[in-house]
Design a protein around this nucleic acid. Structure first.
Lengths: 143, 143
DNA sequence: TTTACTGCAAATCCTTTGCAGTCTG
DNA sequence: CAGACTGCAAAGGATTTGCAGTAAA
């Protein structure tokens, strides 16, 4: 378990517990829809509104993060790291890796070149993770 | 005018001409709604669907770019630069500045550290441009 | 003349909200 | 017991689509 509560100061319930453990179990990026489907597959049901509300609470508590979009649906993922970072989302399996913020210098150059003060930024890198990458030299040297 | 046609190989029409010139005139980031409003203010009308379709055509032809979101609405801006780049969107006045892609190295490190091959990325930096920045030492030293 | 563009309205899609009922603390 | 949480269904907001009519080429 994490040392941070899934739903901030909120109350718990069978649904929220199921939602939290499913988010944990999925391990990778998911949409609200993915989550619901996964729950249903396990025989656990939760109304759409409940899932949206629970996810919102978890996001607010920092236990979950919005890591981009897939089509027109928001993507979320479990993410404990309190440090500022960004996400590498595999478009094949949805695994989410965290990467340090690569924009410190961009922020600097924006200021230097344009006098622009960056206050926020949205960054998500999409691509294919090691395990999903096809290719000849994908040996089983790793894990 | 630009040496690139606003709406690719499409046909022209009074509406599309008005939409294109308004996008040009606005100069900064706008939502479909902003655009419509601006047109109406000039006495030019265009149905929502028409604006959406025209903007889609212009985006596809590369004459316009999606430069982020404002709330739940997509933000667009005129942007000729054919080179890969990202946007600095002023949250105060909406001016859009282009900045070189700051992610080459992030892409590299993603690969080096995680074996992750970045194929796409969404990056928009929000902040305050020089002209909108408040503060005492906003001298007229620069350009 | 052909067929893309227009406009309106209906339809989608994702997400949020209202409300009465249930359950946690 | 008070108030959060749940679920259903209706509401919302942005964007898309169907269709008949108009107008570029």
């Amino acid at each position: 378990m994490a040392d941070r509560l899934p739903y901030g100061s909120g109350r718990t319930s069978p649904q929220r517990r199921a939602i939290a453990s499913m988010a944990e179990e999925l391990g990778r990026a998911f949409t609200i829809d993915d989550l619901e489907r996964a729950l249903r597959r396990k025989g656990k049901r939760a109304g759409v509104a409940t899932v949206y509300r629970a996810v919102a609470a978890m996001e607010e508590s920092g236990w979950l993060e919005r890591v981009g979009v897939r089509g027109s649906k928001a993507l979320y993922a479990r993410c404990d790291s309190p440090a500022h970072h960004h996400h590498l989302v595999c478009t094949s399996c949805g695994i989410v890796l965290a990467t340090d913020c690569p924009l410190e210098f961009a922020t600097h150059s924006a200021k230097a070149e344009h006098g622009f003060t960056v206050t926020e930024h949205d960054v998500t890198l999409y691509g294919v993770c090691r395990d999903c990458r096809p290719g000849p030299e994908l040996g089983e040297d790793g894990d």
